[in-house]
């Protein structure tokens, strides 16, 4: 079983090993995600709230495409029509002290310089 392959191509791995780990951060298996979809979740964010998939340190980066492929397969909705998960700052974990002062963040928050 090669999960990276699934990630790169957006394809669900063919043999559907129920104990395949889909979300490494929260240690969720293939069956956990399928169960959430069968309970009625239709979007990545809905699956997240039911299972915590995508809620850990990687914030969907490791599991997004696999789970999207699973939704497409279970529901028949084309992959291209699925909304991406809600991406929010910080896009990767940052130390809190980096967020403490406005000075340190001025370059990010001020936007492009004006003429």
């Amino acid at each position: 079983m090669n999960t990276d392959e699934g990630n790169r191509t957006g394809q669900a791995p063919a043999d559907h090993d129920p104990w395949l780990i889909v979300c490494r951060c929260e240690e969720l298996y293939w069956v956990d995600i399928v169960e959430a979809i069968r309970a009625g979740a239709r979007t990545l964010d809905e699956i997240k709230r039911l299972t915590r998939c995508g809620m850990g340190p990687c914030q969907w980066k490791g599991c997004w495409s696999t789970v999207a492929a699973m939704i497409a397969e279970e529901t028949g909705v084309p992959l291209a029509e699925l909304a991406p998960p809600r991406i929010r700052a910080p896009v990767r974990p940052v130390r809190l002290d980096a967020l403490l002062t406005a000075d340190q963040a001025a370059g990010l928050g001020a936007g492009p310089p004006e003429d």
Partner: peptide
Amino acid sequence: ALRHVHIVRAF
């Protein structure tokens, strides 16, 4: 002590 921990997400 939170000064030294990582923030994973804002919501």
